[in-house]
Simulated scan of single mutants.
Amino acid sequence: MKFLRIYLGEGDHCDGTPVYKHIVKLCYDHGIKGVTVLKGIMGFGEKHHVHRVDFFTLSEDLPIVVEIVDSSDKIEKIIEEVKKCNFDGLVVYWDVESIRIEKNK
């Protein structure tokens, strides 16, 4: 299993669609086991431009993190698709072990 994390901005788009929504659709279409999109309240990247939300500043480009878990093959396919989008971001991934937790029935 691989864990893939993609850092991007809320304002990033791919073919007119927000990148995070594009990635979720890619994951759905590729049968990925799980994907989660997280919206940050503050952050900065390599360019050191701080993105934040507070009472006085309503940023339109807050940090977004997309987390994906699946097999190495599927993760590599998603990475190749994400590379086709034109945005400033960071993609990191690593091997993980997973345990499924389910409610008692």
Rank of each mutant, 00 (worst) to 15 (best):
K47P: 04
K21R: 11
G43N: 10
K83V: 00
F55L: 10
G34N: 08
C85K: 04
Y7G: 04
L8H: 13
Y20P: 14
I32S: 05
W94R: 08
K74S: 06
L26D: 10
I78G: 04
V24M: 10
H22S: 14
S72N: 08
I23F: 11
D29G: 05
H49I: 13
T36K: 08
H51M: 01
R100F: 12
V92L: 06
C85P: 08
K33V: 09
D29R: 09
D88R: 03
G89C: 02
I6P: 15
L90F: 04
D12A: 15
C14L: 13
E67D: 01
K39M: 09
V66I: 15
L26Y: 11
F56P: 00
F44R: 10
S72D: 13
K77P: 01
L26A: 11
K2M: 14
V96A: 00
G16W: 13
S72C: 02
I64G: 09
V82Q: 11
K74H: 08
F87R: 02
F3W: 07
E80A: 09
H48M: 10
I68V: 15
I78K: 03
L38I: 14
S59E: 10
G40T: 11
T17I: 15
D88P: 02
E80L: 06
N104A: 09
K83C: 02
F56W: 09
I6W: 12
F87I: 00
H48S: 12
G45L: 07
D54G: 05
R100T: 14
R100E: 15
K47I: 10
T17K: 15
F55M: 07
N86L: 04
I79T: 01
R5H: 04
